[in-house]
C-alpha cells in the first residue's frame, strides 16, 4: 500500500472515529439536559465516545504501522513526548485537585484529555519532523 493510500484510509477511519466520539458526547449532554434519562443509560451512551477514541487509536496505530521505519520513528517519538506532556499537565491539575481542593483552582475536565492530546501531538510532531528534515508531518 502506498503512503498516500495509507494516509487516505487513516483519514477516513479518523473522521468516522471522531464522529462517533462527538455523537456520544453530544447525545449524553443533550439527554442529560432535555430528558430524564437515567444515569446508567447515560453511562452506556458515554461508552460510545470511548469506542470512538479506541477506534481512533486503532486507526492511528494502523497508519503508523504502514509508514516506513524512519517516519514511524518520528511518530513514536512524538507520541512519547506528547504523552509525557499530557501526563505532566494532568499530574499538575491532579495534585491540586486532590490535595488543595480550593474553588480558586480550576479543574481539568477529563473529557478534554483526548482533544488536549491532539493539540499537543500535532505541534510536537511538526517540530520533530522539522528537526529531522521532514516537512508536513501531520496527524
Amino acid at each position: 500500500m502506498s503512503e498516500k493510500t495509507i494516509h487516505q484510509t487513516y483519514k477516513k477511519h479518523m473522521v468516522v472515529a471522531m464522529l462517533i466520539y462527538i455523537v456520544g458526547a453530544v447525545s449524553v449532554a443533550y439527554l442529560r439536559k432535555k430528558t430524564g434519562t437515567s444515569v446508567p443509560v447515560l453511562a452506556i451512551i458515554a461508552l460510545i465516545s470511548g469506542a470512538g477514541v479506541v477506534m481512533w487509536i486503532w486507526a492511528h496505530a494502523r497508519y503508523i504501522g504502514g509508514l516506513d521505519e524512519f517516519i514511524q520513528k518520528l511518530h513514536f517519538h512524538a507520541v512519547l513526548i506528547s504523552t509525557g506532556i499530557l501526563l505532566a499537565i494532568t499530574t499538575f491539575f491532579g495534585v491540586l485537585e486532590e490535595f488543595v481542593k480550593s474553588p480558586d483552582i480550576p479543574v481539568l475536565p477529563v473529557m478534554y484529555l483526548v482533544p488536549l492530546f491532539c493539540f499537543i501531538y500535532a505541534p510536537v510532531l511538526y517540530i520533530i519532523g522539522r528537526r529531522n528534515g521532514v516537512k508536513g508531518l501531520c496527524l
Partner: peptide, 8 residues
Amino acid sequence: VSRQTINA
C-alpha cells in the same frame, strides 16, 4: 522507503 528516509 520515503525520500525523507533516504535524506535522513
